[in-house]
Design a protein around this nucleic acid. Structure first.
Lengths: 216, 216
DNA sequence: AGCACAATACTGACTGGTCAGTACTGTTTC
DNA sequence: GAAACAGTACTGACCAGTCAGTATTGTGCT
């Protein structure tokens, strides 16, 4: 059995456990037991409990970034890309529910962590934001996404909306459909040149996010 | 010194500390020290550390609800009410930054808590959501807010957007202005009868959130 | 007022349990 | 046979919660 297998086993167990309980409530003995691994093996792969936690909490970012870059390649209609990105993100969140829950619960705690963890964490998260922002940037270029808000801010909004929704949704069959609400909200809110009545708004035009349908 | 003073001292210290570190990293000794109170006094006011934490983490919900009901009374133009609500919420968040940070960081941990904490927490949070939803409901009645998404879902979205923004913003003088982006996004996304190009969308009309400007 | 006494609030040194991390032994794998 | 491992016993730091003792406040009496 390759070394990386053990590492993965441990991380999977940690992910599961950390998702269900608080950091201090999860013992390394428990992680070892669930991972079907000797306790010492954990310390063979991770310096300490903090690092195990950090690596586990962070892993999803990389995976999701890879997924986005793979499944939502550059080029093609922007509307489709955005939609596909949302599908991938929500799909990933559903697939890796435990990681997602864990990330949610512990995100803001990490900056309090000792040493360089805080920066490493932010860098990881920023990677995901950047991946989403890249897609949105293309939308801006195609006049489908409003240009007055920086793409990375919009990317954060989108992720925030998905997150909000995720908190409320059980893992029901209807859940995926309900994510459409998020996409819908976002597209209307972030679409280019939309008119509205909120304070500060000035424009009177409205664009379609897909950038190709001209029903208006 | 009245009993409530000590209690408040303790809660203030706890809020400050819990905002900066994880539950298990904050010792009751530290809370006592910061609160300038004997350790035993904590246990005179709170059953245990969990309860101290819960009460502290929860207090802001009530305060914010009271604030909303006071400063955003029923009646009046919906657009103004929504705007005022956002101002109040963001103002509160800025004022009670520590509580907000703490709430953010520990929210999802609470459901893992023993006993009835989980339900009590959700109930408290639901109170805030309901307060915001009530305001939005009026917007629906006035045709300013779309009716196809339940008000409480929209309320969650709004709170989520504010939250997302809060995470990114330092406490700069420009910060308050930047919240307008959230309000703007939300109003466009949640405004009644808006056309857009997102998947599943069908409508072609667009309304103004303020519900009193008739540019369309 | 001044005193006695009770009730309540408070303090902080102490304790008992918990758990991260280590050490060691015997086993499997390559 | 050596490297990785499971299993387990061990240890030392750490910390939530306790409790015996002290301070403060309230009350009734003279």
């Amino acid at each position: 059995m390759a070394k990386t297998d053990k590492r993965r086993q441990i991380m999977q167990a940690a992910e599961k456990l950390f998702a269900a309980g608080r950091f201090h409530e999860i013992t390394t003995d428990e992680v070892a037991r669930v991972a079907r691994v000797g306790k010492g093996t954990i310390y063979r792969h991770f310096r300490d409990k903090e690092e195990l936690f950090f690596e586990t909490a962070t892993s999803g970012f990389d995976e999701l970034c890879d997924l986005l870059r793979e499944k939502v390649p550059t080029g093609g209609a922007f509307g489709e890309r955005l939609h596909e990105a949302c599908v991938q993100i929500t799909g990933f969140v559903r697939l890796r529910r435990e990681w997602f829950g864990m990330r949610q619960s512990q995100e803001r705690l990490l900056p309090c962590m000792a040493g360089g963890f805080s920066k490493r964490w932010l860098a990881k998260r920023q990677g995901l934001v950047a991946a989403v922002a890249d897609i949105l940037r293309e939308g801006v270029a195609q006049k489908a996404i409003r240009a007055d808000i920086p793409p990375d801010v919009l990317a954060n909004f989108l992720l925030g909306l998905l997150r909000t929704r995720e908190r409320d949704l059980a893992d029901t069959p209807a859940a995926l459909r309900k994510y459409q609400v998020v996409v819908d909200m976002f597209c209307r809110g972030a679409g280019a040149a939309g008119g509205h009545g909120s304070p500060g708004g000035k424009r009177g035009r409205r664009g379609r996010v897909s950038g190709k349908d001209s029903a208006r």
